[in-house]
Design a protein around this nucleic acid. Structure first.
Lengths: 185, 185
DNA sequence: ACCTGAACACCGTTCAAGT
DNA sequence: ACCTGAACACCGTTCAAGT
């Protein structure tokens, strides 16, 4: 009965459960042991599917970015695409508890993936007419701005005070538009 | 002899030693126990001077921002000031190991400080003619962009690959200029 | 006022051993 | 191939007790 010829765990399950734990417990309580308990497994079992806690965080970050790419629709030109992408990424980061902090902390899944990752990053902008160097630079600028902004926006004490002073969404959009309109073709 | 009428420890000493430990060990090895050992004290002693590890990180982050404000000289106008500030902050964040990740992770020292903190944030720009709302918004935009950028710039694997593709300093400056020139008065 | 000693409730990770 | 049991070397934090 419990011979279990099929594995109980998969990377996908682990990452999905990690997001639920993140939501309930926050980044500082996202531990391998608590995650294992949720998966009804002993902690070392996770290490068969994932080398590291760092790798797990990297996979989670990658999923957030992937959702932002997927949520960015067809665009009239590269500025339009960047503006859309920034807003969707902001929404994806803010939708998860500690999403921005997670992405700031995480490192790319693996060094070997870096070139491939960079290729994907640049692809949509290249398709809209930018050369690779500008595509990478502009995409990095928009991701940077959005990640940094969302870090502040979701940062407890400061948020509560600043929201009295400004409309976060409007101010974010204004900054993003300022940035995108200033980038050169 | 060892009656020590004077305290051995101060917040300043603790924060200073924490920066040295950060340099040697990195953010994930910055522990209260290791810090205590460096200060030749037992770990609980630190808690007399600092309520929390979170507070300690907040104090460290504040010191980095303070250095950026201090390093920003007199400016011709508010755009000039923001450009300078962005470049100095980038340098300050990159000068410390894991500086950007530290600042992304840290929360402001105390909720009660938020209004005061916000006041200081806005002050230089208000002195250069911006109203408070725009001053806060623009300063937040520049800090966000710089913090996000430096997070990537100092993020191991990605850095090594991207540096073949672009000059980080030049690309950062281009993005910062794009942002600042797009902000409205 | 300022610090130590001892303890509580955890961590990430490794590794032999099971199935 | 995939997981458990047990262990190693740590954590942050509390709190009584010392001085």
């Amino acid at each position: 009965m419990n011979r279990q010829a099929q594995p109980n765990l998969s990377r996908g399950q682990i990452v999905a459960e990690a997001f639920e734990l993140l939501e309930e417990a926050g980044l500082e309580n996202l531990s391998m042991r608590r995650l294992a308990a949720r998966l009804e497994v002993q902690a070392p079992a996770i290490y068969w599917h994932v080398t590291d806690k760092a790798e797990l965080l990297g996979l989670m970050a990658r999923e957030i970015y992937a959702a932002a790419y997927a949520g960015t629709g067809p665009a009239a030109d590269w500025r339009d695409w960047l503006g859309q992408f920034g807003r969707v990424l902001n929404a994806q980061l803010a939708a998860r508890r500690d999403g921005a902090r997670l992405c700031a902390l995480a490192r790319p899944p693996s060094p070997a993936d870096a070139p491939l990752h960079a290729g994907r990053i640049a692809a949509p902008l290249i398709a809209l007419g930018l050369d690779e160097e500008r595509a990478l630079a502009h995409q990095a600028a928009v991701i940077s701005f959005t990640l940094g902004w969302t870090t502040f926006e979701t940062n407890g004490p400061m948020r509560d005070y600043l929201r009295q002073m400004m409309d976060f969404d409007a101010t974010f959009t204004a900054g993003l538009d300022a940035l995108v309109s200033g980038l050169r073709a």
